[in-house]
């Protein structure tokens, strides 16, 4: 554990809490992509199956359970409790265009051809692109994203950027090097770059955020 990873994990946790609180307090999931949230739930489900097979640390296990739980609650709020407020007409990204290639890639490019390992690889690849329906939704509607949604996206994006710093640190300190995670993590962070720029130049100056189509 190093400071980059710890702050990254806390940022990841903060993102999930921000989203849950936003939906719960406003009793509405307007502007939130249910498709992105379903993909994130798939990411956690396929990656954290190792809860049943391997124990790393109490911290590790607790965080995994919390991520799974928060993610399921978010999906539940969007598709059941506050379904009436879900903006499905604008959440039109074709998820199969992401899931199918990602599944194929996970089968072809992995560390080891085993069930759990392929699911882990699938989750890493899927996470890197899972935010696209959300970004697509914001840019497509031309609507301004709520500031709280921007905070959520920033926290979620910066988490993987911090993981890149963590990987550089671990490479020099431990000789640790996970090619799949690093490449996918870089792709993931690059997808957020445009948003980061807009976030810093607009939201931090008190304006609302629009992503140009």
């Amino acid at each position: 554990m190093n400071i980059f990873r710890l702050v990254g994990d806390l940022s990841h946790l903060a993102a999930l809490i921000i989203l849950l609180l936003k939906i719960w307090k406003s009793r509405s999931c307007a502007g939130v992509s249910g498709k992105s949230q379903i993909m994130f739930a798939m990411v956690y489900m396929t990656r954290y199956l190792d809860l049943f097979t391997t124990f790393v640390s109490v911290y590790n296990s607790v965080m995994k359970v919390v991520f799974l739980l928060f993610s399921f609650v978010t999906v539940y709020l969007i598709y059941f409790k506050f379904k009436a407020t879900y903006d499905g007409n604008h959440d039109t990204f074709r998820v199969e265009f992401l899931v199918v290639p990602v599944a194929g890639l996970a089968v072809l490019v992995n560390h080891e051809f085993s069930f759990l390992e392929i699911l882990w690889t699938f989750s890493i690849y899927l996470e890197s692109v899972a935010i696209l329906p959300q970004l697509f939704m914001i840019s497509k509607t031309g609507c301004e994203a709520e500031t709280i949604t921007s905070h959520y996206l920033f926290a979620l994006g910066i988490y993987r950027a911090l993981y890149i710093a963590n990987w550089i640190f671990r490479y020099y300190m431990e000789g640790f090097f996970d090619f799949i995670a690093i490449v996918a993590g870089c792709v993931q962070t690059i997808l957020y770059c445009d948003f980061f720029y807009l976030y810093v130049t607009k939201v931090w100056k008190g304006k609302r955020l629009t992503i140009p189509a």
Binding site: H12, V56, M63, N166, G175
Partner: peptide
């Protein structure tokens, strides 16, 4: 490639 399993990151 030198990577560790089990995966110890989140």
């Amino acid at each position: 490639l030198n990577h560790f399993r089990p995966h110890d990151e989140l």
